[in-house]
């Protein structure tokens, strides 16, 4: 987990233009006297165990029942929005270019790298269908799904919200995101669909009806927006 703070990272101050800084011992700065961990970009990090993730999800489910998925998604959205502002600052500081002018794929990889270093997993963006107004994100080693194991349903609502919030801010259009395939459903990796709300609502409906990720991909490519 990370929260924006003002903790300065000494290595970064010494090497502000160093881009390959994701090695564990370089990315994190352990401040022994304060008992804090800062990352390269000055975010405060907290190391948690899988028990924390389980406790968070199960505790939430106990409190709000089925609405816990929506709550996790909302938390993700807010996190993504906040993080896009934070990212705007550090990206420009590190590369001397505004995010709007940068090569998109490079920009997105750069955004996700701190998450990878923090243990949220690696990703792969599939923009093949961007002309049709949607794109896929494949996530490997989701911290949430790997913790919960095979529970037969998608569990990465926090990630879906994170992507929705981040991309909504970055492209300045209201976007939604849904996980259409999950490690916790016995798949090898998680797959998220990002797009305008009506598209995502349609996908949610199909998913609910038992459609698989490839069913959903096919229907979207064929231009369906509802059942």
């Amino acid at each position: 987990m990370d929260t924006p703070s003002v903790s300065a990272h000494k290595l970064r101050q010494q090497h502000p233009q160093k881009h390959s800084h994701y090695k564990f011992s370089e990315f994190f700065q352990f401040n022994a006297t304060e008992g804090t961990i800062a990352d390269w970009n000055g975010s405060r990090n907290i190391i948690t165990s899988e028990h924390f993730i389980i406790g968070l999800l199960e505790g939430l489910e106990e409190e709000v029942g089925a609405a816990s998925a929506a709550v996790m998604y909302s938390i993700g959205v807010e996190w993504g929005k906040q993080d896009s502002l934070f990212f705007d600052q550090w990206f420009e500081r590190e590369y001397n270019i505004r995010p709007q002018q940068a090569n998109l794929m490079f920009l997105l990889e750069t955004w996700w790298w701190p998450f990878t270093a923090q243990g949220w997993g690696r990703w792969e963006i599939d923009m093949t269908d961007r002309q049709q107004g949607f794109m896929f994100i494949n996530l490997f080693d989701s911290a949430v799904a790997r913790t919960l194991g095979d529970v037969g349903k998608p569990v990465c609502y926090l990630y879906a919200g994170l992507y929705a919030g981040f991309f909504t801010e970055m492209v300045r259009k209201q976007l939604s995101c849904i996980e259409i395939q999950c490690y916790s459903m016995g798949e090898t990796y998680c797959k998220f669909l990002l797009g305008a709300k009506d598209r995502i609502d349609a996908a949610a409906f199909w998913l609910n009806e038992g459609a698989t990720a490839s069913d959903i991909e096919n229907r979207l490519r064929a231009g369906y927006t509802s059942s």
């Binding site: 002018q101 940068a102 490079f106 923009m127 970055m170």
Partner: peptide, 23 residues
Amino acid sequence: EAAFDQLLAEDDALTLDDLSALF
């Protein structure tokens, strides 16, 4: 070495605005 930054803005590359226009 500092010219790495030039690599970031390319004429033919997709940008955030292009992406925004697609949604």
